[in-house]
Computed example of a mutant assay.
Amino acid sequence: MSESGFASTPQPPYYAVIFTSTRTDGDSGYAGMAQRMAELAAQQPGYLGVESTRGAEGLGITVSYWRDLDAISAWKAVAEHRIAQETGKRRWYEHFEVRIARVERAYSK
């Protein structure tokens, strides 16, 4: 992620994994794991960047960008990431949705 908070992505096409969530109360190790997952994702082949925010009402949206579907599948299968996913289901998230989309066009100001 750049200093502006926006991911620096290439020209499309590429893919976006959109993770929308509401958290449970308390940290319970979440912040440390989130930082570790950001570092680990950035090391994965095909990783392009990430953007993330959480609103005052608790809704969080994280969008990670990937070169292709194979890169997304490989990231999902990383052992440490799988542990974080399972812990998230049990401890950190009241609810979450994952959506995967192909970015066909992108522009900015």
Rank of each mutant, 00 (worst) to 15 (best):
residue 23 R to C: 07
residue 54 R to L: 09
residue 69 L to T: 12
residue 42 A to Y: 02
residue 66 W to C: 07
residue 60 G to C: 03
residue 80 E to V: 04
residue 76 K to P: 03
residue 15 Y to I: 11
residue 62 T to M: 05
residue 88 G to Y: 01
residue 25 D to E: 15
residue 27 D to P: 00
residue 74 A to R: 12
residue 88 G to H: 13
residue 101 A to I: 06
residue 7 A to K: 11
residue 2 S to H: 15
residue 64 S to C: 05
residue 62 T to H: 03
residue 40 L to R: 10
residue 45 P to F: 02
residue 17 V to N: 00
residue 20 T to P: 01
residue 81 H to Q: 08
residue 6 F to D: 14
residue 54 R to V: 14
residue 21 S to H: 12
residue 106 A to Q: 13
residue 93 Y to R: 04
residue 55 G to R: 11
residue 65 Y to P: 04
residue 52 S to I: 04
residue 48 L to V: 08
residue 82 R to M: 02
residue 26 G to F: 05
residue 52 S to D: 04
residue 109 K to F: 15
residue 101 A to E: 15
residue 50 V to D: 04
residue 97 E to L: 07
residue 32 G to R: 00
residue 24 T to H: 13
residue 72 I to C: 10
residue 44 Q to S: 09
residue 5 G to E: 11
residue 22 T to R: 14
residue 3 E to G: 14
residue 13 P to Y: 02
residue 38 A to C: 01
residue 97 E to D: 07
residue 1 M to K: 08
residue 36 R to M: 14
residue 93 Y to F: 09
residue 92 W to G: 04
residue 31 A to C: 00
residue 83 I to C: 04
residue 33 M to C: 14
residue 28 S to D: 14
residue 73 S to T: 11
residue 13 P to T: 11
residue 25 D to Q: 03
residue 62 T to Y: 05
residue 89 K to N: 12
residue 89 K to Q: 14
residue 18 I to P: 07
residue 8 S to I: 15
residue 22 T to N: 15
residue 61 I to N: 07
residue 32 G to K: 00
residue 60 G to W: 00
residue 40 L to S: 15
residue 61 I to G: 05
residue 21 S to V: 12
residue 99 R to M: 10
residue 66 W to T: 08
residue 62 T to E: 08
residue 7 A to P: 15
residue 38 A to S: 13
residue 20 T to N: 09
residue 84 A to S: 02
residue 109 K to M: 12
residue 87 T to V: 05
residue 40 L to I: 15
residue 1 M to R: 01
residue 81 H to S: 02
residue 80 E to I: 09
residue 16 A to R: 05
residue 58 G to P: 11
residue 54 R to N: 05
residue 21 S to M: 09
residue 19 F to T: 12
residue 103 V to Q: 12
residue 30 Y to L: 05
residue 99 R to N: 02
residue 29 G to T: 01
residue 5 G to W: 12
residue 7 A to H: 10
residue 39 E to W: 03
residue 2 S to F: 07
residue 66 W to Q: 01
residue 26 G to V: 03
residue 49 G to W: 06
residue 49 G to R: 02
residue 87 T to Y: 10
residue 29 G to H: 00
residue 18 I to F: 06
residue 69 L to D: 11
residue 52 S to E: 07
residue 35 Q to R: 10
residue 23 R to N: 07
residue 60 G to K: 08
residue 61 I to E: 11
residue 63 V to M: 02
residue 13 P to L: 09
residue 51 E to I: 04
residue 90 R to D: 12
residue 18 I to K: 10
